[in-house]
Design a protein around this nucleic acid. Structure first.
Length: 713
RNA sequence: GCGCGAUUAGCUCAGUGGCAGAGCGUUCCCUUGACAUGGGAAAGGCCACAGGUUCAAUCCCUGUAUCGCGCACCA
């Protein structure tokens, strides 16, 4: 026979049909009825909230790995009888989405200012309708068993209320304040940025050594009459308020308290000492520009220096820079300042210098420092809470080394600039303010803000496991922890699983702009979702980054075919059997007896099955997914197919052994399918349904593998 | 500057204080009734380098090199 199963496994014929079947069954919802009784975990919940992808893009390889891991965890818990809930959703992603829509507008020759705030926001919502769900459809394609009835978006009405509540909660505590501080400013996005939103890129620049004349004309030695400072930003000298040196720097000891004449201006600026100056850098004397450098602003505050804001929000020089420079771009101003200094012979030398320049993480423009009126959230108490949660073990990182990234950031944290001067986002709920909140302010509330009704909140919060990528440990994980502690009095999750990053086969970062990105949808199209899941998990051993290789996909495809054909064999061999073991009702019955071995081969395979059952559970619980999959692969391919299936052929020719062998075949296959199901759900469900077909029980959805009882021995 | 990770077969990676492993690739044999997307066999490794601990080190310790990644500085 083989009219029921094709000779080769063809995912395209199967996957979308199976997914629809699951969706219709309602089994993605934790409330769904289970067919089997005496479930010890019936009252327990197991919850995962998805890291909500941005509404700007489509899934990349990292998303697929991320989702596959969550799906493995959820599917196993579901089969163990838990009320397993995986909440899906998307993030409005303030700057990122706004930029995407602006780019779209630009094609029509428009800017957001041309159409105004209201119309612009309309367009963003239209964008969200159009593209926002694309990524969710892709999640379905890979088999993610999310509860779609609980789909959330960070700008849902109910969610907006939670954000407002959170804002006022902090506000009333006095933890949110408004102030003029020197912040990171992206002059393209026209908004402030937090420290985390900066990306540093190495660049070769010029280091200019500029001579500042001393007020009294000469050093006590009577030789030089300048103090030389080194800078890569000569144009910012127009906003200098001081020259600073390290207090213990003997070279300049006598100059402290004196003044220098700031060239190109008519200002006298004091020479001060400050421990933050590094004596080894440049000449050891540094120009202090309080308005355009964060560290200088701290020095400036400490010494009561004047702040000259000479660079504006659009990256143009302001009047305080002086008449000759007003209106120039930063680059033009630099050229002119250098020329003017050279005319006066005030440039001592120019050296090449390699350093890091801050760029906007969303648009890539160079970030300026400038004083700006912004909202801040006090971080000292919140950071303490978040540190304690990890140190006390209430929140656990896997692998634990990521704790350090988290703790180091929190230990040295500054107040969080939470206002952004963009239009798309949660408006700051204070009269007369046009700013919106940093997108991460709302993401930080995700694990509880998604539960709109109190019953759900009580039942599913705190969640169990957070599965995410390392680059948002501080952006997101840390902020969720303190938000959860502050608003819910409980950390939002217990385990934080930081998974591998998927790199190209050369070990390069996958990136659209570099053209090194691979679209996982192409793999799913060509090899199927199960093979893609297999390939990702197969390669993600330990927590090392993965050098993506198509070989693993091929291996996955072959393995699926192997399972398919082994199943075909077992079904053929048991087609006319009267064994109760063919009946899924029996298979799923917890009282289902383990067949008795009659031969050495029987004994071997049953022993191996017992081992693999134990190990698979253990490995999944320890987040060792790849190990679990490798072991299952070995077991199924070598122990079951190469050894037992071959032995079974002879055994079935023996009338005394035939029926018992059939029982064992069915037993081992059905347990294998269960163990494999979290990893490769479609093919296993499809085969399972064929087994049901032989028992003429297809119509009963309670026989679906997705809710089968997870094997325990 | 500080820290983290890696270095094992041609490639991608597991692994263990006591004969070195997988997938893919390569070579040879097998068109046997689940599967040629298969089966059987084989070749291929000074486990980065140098010291140390040990009866024994690829594994533990110290150092070096190379690659990758964070953080800080980035005047």
């Amino acid at each position: 026979m083989s009219k029921e199963l094709d000779k080769a496994y063809e995912p395209k014929k199967v996957e979308s049909r199976i997914y629809e079947m699951w969706e219709k069954s309602g089994f993605f919802q934790p409330e769904a009825d289970r067919s089997w009784a005496d479930n010890p975990n019936k009252k327990k919940t197991y919850t995962i909230v998805i890291p909500p992808p941005n509404i700007t893009g489509s899934l990349h390889m990292g998303h697929v790995l991320n989702a596959t891991i969550q799906d493995i965890l959820i599917r196993k818990k579901r089969m163990e009888g838990y009320q397993a809930l995986w909440v899906p959703g998307t993030d409005h992603a303030g700057i990122a989405t706004q930029n995407a829509v602006e780019k779209d507008l630009k094609k029509q020759g428009l800017s957001r200012y041309d159409i105004g705030r209201e119309e612009f926001l309309n367009r963003v919502w239209q964008w969200k309708e159009k593209y926002g769900n694309q990524i969710l459809e892709q999640l379905k394609k890979i088999g993610a068993s999310c509860d779609w009835s609980r789909l959330r978006f960070t700008m849902d009405n109910a969610y907006q209320l939670e954000v407002e509540k959170a804002f006022f909660h902090y506000y009333k505590k006095g933890w949110i304040y408004r102030g003029e501080k020197v912040v990171n400013w992206c002059s393209r996005c026209q908004t402030s940025l937090s420290d985390l939103e900066l990306e540093y890129k190495k660049e070769t620049a010029k280091l200019y050594f500029i001579k500042y004349p001393l007020e009294n004309g000469s050093l006590p030695s009577g030789e030089a009459c300048f103090i030389t400072v080194a800078t890569t930003r000569p144009e910012t000298m127009l906003g200098d308020s001081a020259v600073a040196i390290h207090p213990s720097d003997v070279r300049y000891k006598n100059l402290i308290g004196q003044c220098a004449i700031l060239p190109l201006t008519d200002r006298k600026i004091p020479i001060i000492s400050d421990r933050r100056v590094e004596a080894e850098f440049g000449t050891g004397a540094v120009k202090v520009t309080p308005a355009h450098s964060i560290i200088d602003s701290e020095i400036g505050q400490g010494h009561n220096l004047e702040f000259f804001k000479i660079i504006g929000e659009h990256g143009k020089m302001l009047p305080l820079a002086g008449k000759a420079y007003t209106g120039l771009s930063i680059a033009d101003c630099r050229t002119k300042v250098v020329e003017d200094l050279e005319k006066q012979n005030l440039i001592e030398k120019i050296e090449d210098y390699e350093h890091n320049i801050a760029h906007c993480y969303r648009c890539g423009s160079v970030v300026e420092n400038l004083p700006s009126l912004q909202w801040f959230l006090k971080m000292d108490e919140l950071a303490k809470m978040a540190i304690k949660a990890v140190k006390s073990g209430k929140v656990k990182f896997h692998p634990s080394r990521w704790e350090k990234i988290y703790l180091d950031w929190l230990k040295n944290i500054k107040d969080w600039c939470i206002s952004r001067q963009i239009w798309w986002g949660h408006k700051i709920p204070i009269e007369g303010v046009e700013d919106v909140l940093d997108t991460w302010f709302s993401s930080a509330l995700w694990p509880f803000a998604i539960f709109e009704n109190k019953k759900d909140l009580k039942k599913f919060y705190p969640t169990n496991t957070l599965v995410t990528a390392r680059d948002i440990i501080n952006f997101w994980v840390a902020r969720m922890v303190f938000s959860g502690l502050e608003f819910m009095k409980k950390a939002p999750f217990h385990d934080v699983l930081i998974h591998a990053t998927i790199l190209t086969s050369e070990g390069k970062r996958m990136s659209k702009s570099l053209g090194t990105g691979l679209d996982p949808m192409n793999f799913i199209e060509q090899y199927g979702a199960d093979a893609t899941r297999f390939a990702l998990i197969w390669q993600t051993m330990g927590t090392q980054d993965v050098h993506w290789s198509v070989d693993a996909l091929v291996a996955g495809k072959k393995f699926l075919n192997k399972i398919w054909n082994a199943s075909r064999f077992v079904l053929q061999q048991t087609e006319n059997s009267k064994s109760e073991y063919r009946n899924p009702k029996q298979i799923q019955n917890s009282k289902f007896k383990i067949p008795k071995p009659k031969t050495q081969a029987d004994k071997e395979i049953l022993k191996k099955l017992k081992e693999i059952t134990k190990n698979t559970s253990k490995n999944i619980d320890n987040f060792e997914f790849s190990q679990a999959l490798h072991d299952l692969y070995d077991f199924f391919w070598h122990d079951f197919c190469d050894c037992y299936l071959e032995s079974s052929k002879a055994q079935m020719a023996n009338a005394d052994l035939k029926e018992n062998t059939q029982k064992i075949l069915i037993y081992v296959l059905s347990n294998s399918l269960k163990l494999l199901h979290p990893f490769i759900p479609h093919v296993t469900e499809e085969i399972w349904s064929k087994m049901s077909f032989f028992a003429k029980a297809l119509k009963d959805k309670s026989t679906m593998l997705i809710i089968e009882k997870w094997p325990t021995q």
